[in-house]
């Protein structure tokens, strides 16, 4: 981030299974028990802290066979709590989850409910969904942004009014890091849109000329 208005966001992929085997012990192949979850979360946080600028992290569960409630609490809930409440993570880090299979969903939903948290989850079919105890108006607003991908800052007020959506709900979604607001222009982005933009290689002519300028990086330990 700079005074000139340049803004660069990094994408950062975290393969939870790979972290599990390298960080905790190669013996462990399931995301179970609280100490294991704590170790994996701290490894994710540590990787995110190493990124110098703002970042969006895709936490990938696709190769995790068993996820219990204690581990979901440590990995998913505490990671999101750190973002929402200003814990270990910086204020310019965003997290999405991907690869959640049907048997992961129940523990994740349970811990989100318990802590009143929202999680942006990449859907198998593309796009994203917002998991957690989301009130209907916030869900509608989030879904509307997800549908269009981004809303330019100068048009935001009118865009909300046309749809009967409330600014207070938008603020809550931004505060919960379920939506991204460009720090200078006030544009609102769906996290899935950001992830898609960042997946495009820099310099690719098909990349839309839209800040933030992506700088995609993959790291799977």
């Amino acid at each position: 981030m700079s005074d000139s208005g340049d803004f660069q966001l990094d994408a950062f992929a975290v393969d939870v299974r790979a972290l599990l085997s390298t960080t905790v012990a190669s013996l462990y192949s399931h995301l179970i028990t609280r100490p294991t979850g704590r170790a994996v979360r701290m490894a994710i946080e540590s990787q995110l802290e190493e990124i110098p600028g703002p970042a969006i992290s895709m936490v990938d569960f696709s190769s995790v066979a068993v996820l219990d409630y204690s581990c979901a609490d440590e990995v998913v809930a505490k990671l999101l709590l750190g973002l929402r409440d200003g814990g270990a993570l910086r204020s310019d880090v965003f997290v999405c989850f991907r690869g959640l299979q049907s048997f992961h969903r129940e523990p994740v939903e349970a811990v989100l409910e318990r802590h009143s948290l929202y999680a942006v989850v990449e859907a198998d079919s593309g796009g994203a969904e917002l998991m957690g105890p989301v009130p209907a108006p916030e869900g509608a607003l989030w879904g509307a942004v997800e549908e269009v991908g981004q809303v330019p800052g100068p048009r935001l007020e009118g865009w909300l009014r046309e749809r009967g959506l409330e600014g207070a709900d938008l603020e809550h979604l931004v505060a919960s890091r379920s939506l991204f607001r460009h720090p200078f222009r006030g544009d609102i982005y769906a996290l899935s849109e950001l992830a898609e933009l960042l997946a495009e290689r820099p310099g690719d002519p098909s990349t839309p000329e839209t800040p933030p300028e992506p700088n995609a990086r993959d790291q799977t330990s």
Binding site: H30, I32, T33, R34, A65, V66, L67, D68, Y69, S70, F103, P107
Partner: peptide, 12 residues
């Protein structure tokens, strides 16, 4: 999987 989760939680 659900059975494994039950056993994991109860042993914890």
């Amino acid at each position: 999987v659900q059975f494994s989760v039950i056993l994991s939680e109860v042993c914890q």
